[in-house]
Amino acid sequence: MAQHIIPGAPPITVVLRPSSRARRISLRVSRLDGKVTLTVPRGVSAAQALGFAEEKQDWLRQQLAKQPAQVPIALGAQVPVAGRERVIVAGTGRSVVLGQETLAVPGKPEQVARRVQTYLKDLARHRLSEAVDHYAMRLGKAPSRMTLRDTRSRWGSCSSAGALMFSWRLVMAAPDVLDYVAAHEVAHLQEMNHSQAFWDVVMRLHGPYEGPRRWLRTDGQVLHRYRFEDRG
């Protein structure tokens, strides 16, 4: 996919995405990272599509201005762990240490982002494994496996083979949010749909869930503003 810069204050980077399925030119601004995608249908030239984007540049800048600021992970930055902001400070020894207000990270400053990401992934695996085991025991059904990813479009999933997948960024959210997503995906081991029967299972496993479900819909994207070395 080609990139194009619309000059101005600030300039806008637009990614052109040719599509044989699209029926019209469309613009999309990602709520996660502010990426601007210009979809170009078959038979429409890149110049014509870019002209459309340039006509919409005021709207694009308005949308981009609404994006939460990106937070590069480094010493002095703040990162949420279990819903509580922690200041990243230099640590000693070999292990990352979670405190009430801080996250102490040993090693060289240029290694901080990678070490924080590794720590959060390990913590997410531990806490999600506990939550999944708890709800699976209550349900009487066990998943075939559990994996973690850095997904953009979903917080978790359950395959027809009973394999669960979660975003490791859930460990940055409040514990009730992580617990809700774990219960949601475990419930799919019994109901592979979103019928009333499914939501009845979620209620039985987790209890009231509207609070964390609403938070994910309205505020969940803020967890993607923290920038590490990769999105693995």
Results as ranks from 00 to 15, higher is better:
Ile6Ser: 03
Ala9Ile: 02
Pro11Cys: 07
Pro11Thr: 06
Ile12Tyr: 05
Leu16Gly: 03
Leu16Ile: 05
Ser20Gly: 13
Ser20Glu: 14
Ala22Pro: 07
Arg24Gln: 15
Arg24Tyr: 13
Ser26Val: 04
Leu27Asp: 12
Leu27Ile: 14
Ser30Cys: 00
Leu32Met: 07
Leu32Gln: 12
Asp33Glu: 11
Lys35Asn: 09
Lys35Leu: 13
Val36Ala: 07
Leu38Ala: 07
Val44Lys: 01
Ala47Gln: 15
Ala49Thr: 10
Gly51Cys: 12
Gly51Trp: 11
Lys56Glu: 14
Lys56Arg: 15
Leu60Trp: 05
Arg61Ala: 01
Gln63Lys: 15
Leu64His: 08
Ala65Gly: 07
Gln70Ser: 13
Gln70Met: 11
Val71Asn: 06
Val71Lys: 11
Val71Tyr: 06
Val71Gly: 08
Pro72Phe: 07
Ala74Thr: 12
Val89Tyr: 04
Gly91Asn: 10
Gly93Met: 13
Val96Tyr: 07
Val97Trp: 01
Gln100Ile: 03
Gln100Val: 13
Leu103Asp: 08
Val105Lys: 06
Val105Trp: 02
Val105Asp: 06
Pro106Met: 12
Pro106Arg: 11
Lys108Phe: 06
Pro109Leu: 04
Gln111Val: 02
Val116Glu: 04
Val116Ala: 05
Thr118Gly: 13
Thr118Cys: 02
Thr118Arg: 15
Leu123Lys: 08
Ala131Ile: 02
Val132Leu: 11
Ala136His: 06
Ala142Asp: 04
Pro143Val: 09
Met146Asn: 05
Met146Ser: 10
Thr147Trp: 02
Arg149Phe: 00
Trp155Ile: 13
Gly156Arg: 09
Gly156Ser: 08
Ser157Val: 01
Cys158Glu: 01
Ser159Pro: 03
Ala161Ile: 00
Met172Asp: 11
Met172Pro: 10
Pro175Glu: 02
Pro175Cys: 06
Asp176Lys: 10
Tyr180Arg: 13
Val181Trp: 04
Ala182Asp: 10
Ala182His: 08
His184Asp: 13
His184Ile: 15
His184Gln: 13
Ala187Arg: 03
Leu189Ser: 05
Leu189Thr: 04
Gln196Leu: 12
Phe198Pro: 09
Trp199Val: 06
Trp199Leu: 02
Leu205Asn: 07
Leu205Ile: 12
Leu205Asp: 08
Pro212Gln: 09
Arg214Met: 10
Gln221Thr: 14
Val222Asp: 09
Leu223Phe: 12
His224Glu: 05
Arg225Cys: 10
Arg227Tyr: 03
Glu229Ser: 14
Asp230Trp: 00
Asp230Gly: 08
